[in-house]
Amino acid sequence: MSRKRVLVVDDNDLNLKLMTYLLATENCDVFTAPDALRAQVALREHKTDLVLLDLQLPDMDGLSLTRLLRADPRTADLLIVAVTAYAMKGDEERARAAGVDDYVTKPIAKDAFRSKVGELLLRSGTR
């Protein structure tokens, strides 16, 4: 199986570092972006299998970015998972309505996070 490409978008450097480390042991290459603009640039330049997206970014909120990506034919089928500290009632519904495929709340649990990403990457091969 070929290596998968995962883009992690988060404005907190420690959270980026943690997620990068957690995914390093999986069968994938991890790239990061600290804001929506750089995430869009990265997605245009490289074929990507999965995006882990923080919902509060400095330049744009994650839901708007998701809608933009869904509207673009090149990224319409992209697997997008919200990884966010927004854990109040209604947050997940709003995110799913905006078009994310899955929703993970921070603080993340190490093993659950890895298995969820692994499972999603398997799914991404069949899309």
Partner: peptide, 13 residues
């Protein structure tokens, strides 16, 4: 809630 969870994420992780 959001602001407290953000540092907790790296602490717990």
């Amino acid at each position: 809630s959001h602001e407290l969870r953000t540092p907790l994420n790296s602490i717990i992780g």
